[in-house]
Write a protein that binds this DNA or RNA. Structure first.
Length: 422
RNA sequence: GGAGAGAUGGCCGAGCGGUCGAAGGCGCACGCCUGGAAAGUGUGUAUACCCCACAAGGGUAUCAUGGGUUCGAAUCCCAUUCUCUCCGCCA
């Protein structure tokens, strides 16, 4: 959520930047400022009338104590009037604040200066590419065929017990999952991250905190009986660990890593690119999250980007890094790098990681602040990235490393799988 | 699921109708003491919003949340949420 004061002081810039995200704020911003003025005015009225009431109450108290019943009763009549006035102001204030908040919640984050304008994925900028695309034979198989050839992932079984988008991993396929998770976690630990195992369901407040609510309500599975949401990423519980906190500046950054299953309804995306492991309702992911000082968050973003690139290098996968354009970025992000891995049989780039700086957008929603030795608390910056999401990594590994003897496991992973051929 | 107890500041904990943003302790910060440290000692130590120059100063709100009673509520009443204990069930 943007800060109202910032909007007030930088109206023009805000409108222009939101435009890069394809959000037309020309009308909404003046309305917001107007509402804020009303809010201040009403606040003042309320405070003044409460001030008067408080004073009267004190006076009455003194009069009662000194036995001046009559005078006290006289004053009481005055308070009734004030009271209904206060009620009116306060009802009004609540209404205005609600309206303000509703609008603010719907405004996306401002993009960083380096974010290109654009509407679609094609407008993203490729900032880096490395690794050789393997030279496969003509009869190379897509990963779903490899999966059934070696009987390591069963999509039909998943269909039967749950539905499409819920694959069942078997035998070496299951082991490979476990290996990847451990591999990713261990690497993050080496990098100084602290491991967490968060709940897989979160409450509404957490959903609002990281920005999934109200923006993406329909994309999360909702457990209505207890009003909880299945997490679409560990970002949600992990970042919300810090909700409503004021931490010391010298304790920053907080570096957290968590493995979790992720659940996404993916409503509206049926039909396209959904074969095999390309798009699932449930998948595994290791996520890194950092809470950082505003002065250092972009440096941290680059570090995280370097870290993710290192993982892909270890896995010997050809990949590229994209700077997302305004239209392709998430609601809450100020700058996002996507990592895509080339899956050779499908001949497709698959997104395996998204690394973002949210600046103070999430922390403003969740009141995550830090304090310098001197001065008032300030909003911290939050960042996160996938490191990494498993299914598409598996897809690329299966496709790119297929040989007549079997699928080769990258060297770095062999200690984790216990086998080098699948 | 049944029965009971409870929710107060960073933490512990008092307060049970007015002088309470809240005693006391711990922690933390700064100072004194000390050769240095410990101990001791002094001072300070919530957040948001409003007025105002985002200064000084002033005002309002916040003792789980929301409502109510009252001139006045951390204190009384109701609802909700959460936590704990015991029983039941159970990985």
């Amino acid at each position: 959520m943007l800060q109202l004061n910032y909007i007030r002081e930088n109206t023009k810039e805000v409108i222009e930047k939101l435009n890069i995200k394809n959000f037309d704020a020309k009308e909404i911003i003046p309305k917001l400022i107007d509402l804020d003025n009303k809010r201040k005015e009403t606040q003042k009225q309320l405070d003044d009338s409460l001030f008067e009431s408080n004073n009267l109450a004190k006076e009455i108290g003194v009069l009662f104590k000194s036995g001046k019943q009559k005078e006290a009763n006289g004053l009481k009549e005055k308070t009734a009037q004030l009271k209904s006035l206060s009620k009116e102001y306060s009802d009004n204030l609540i209404l205005i604040e609600k309206e303000l908040n509703d609008i603010l919640l719907q405004i996306p984050n401002l993009p960083h200066n380096s974010v290109p304008k654009g509407k679609r994925a094609e407008d993203n900028i490729i900032v880096h590419q490395e690794g050789d695309v393997p030279d496969l034979t003509k009869d190379a198989l897509p990963h779903w065929d490899i999966a059934s050839k070696y009987d390591i992932i069963d999509f039909e079984l998943g269909n039967k017990i749950t539905g499409s988008g819920f694959p069942v991993y078997k035998a070496k396929g299951a082991k490979l999952q476990r290996a990847l998770i451990n591999f990713f976690l261990d690497n993050a630990l080496k990098e100084g991250y602290t491991e967490y195992q968060p709940p897989l369901m979160v409450n509404e407040d957490s959903g609002y905190g990281t920005g999934q609510l109200p923006d993406k309500e329909g994309q999360m599975y909702h457990v209505s009986i207890d009003n909880l949401y299945l997490i679409p990423t560990a970002e949600v519980p992990i970042t919300n660990l810090f909700r409503n906190m004021i931490v010391k500046a010298e304790e920053l950054p907080y570096k957290c890593v968590a493995y979790s299953s992720c659940f996404r309804r993916e409503a509206g995306s049926y039909g396209k690119d959904v074969r095999g492991l390309n798009r699932l309702h449930q998948f595994d992911k290791v996520e890194i999250v950092q809470i950082q000082h505003p002065d250092k968050s972009y440096q941290t973003l680059e570090e995280m980007r370097g870290y993710v690139a290192g993982l892909l290098r270890l896995l010997e996968l050809p990949f590229r890094t994209l700077r997302l354009c305004g239209g392709d970025m998430s609601f809450a992000s100020a700058l996002t790098y996507d990592f895509e891995v080339y899956s050779a049989a499908q001949q497709k780039w698959l997104e395996v990681s998204s690394v973002s700086n949210f600046e103070s957008f999430q922390s403003n929603r969740m009141k995550l602040r830090f304090r310098e030795k001197e001065g008032k608390p300030q909003l911290a910056h939050t960042l996160n990235g996938s490191a990494l999401a498993l299914p598409r990594i598996v897809a690329a590994l299966l496709e790119n490393n297929q040989t007549n003897e079997g699928v080769k496991i990258p060297k770095a992973l062999v200690p984790y799988t216990g086998f080098d051929l699948l």
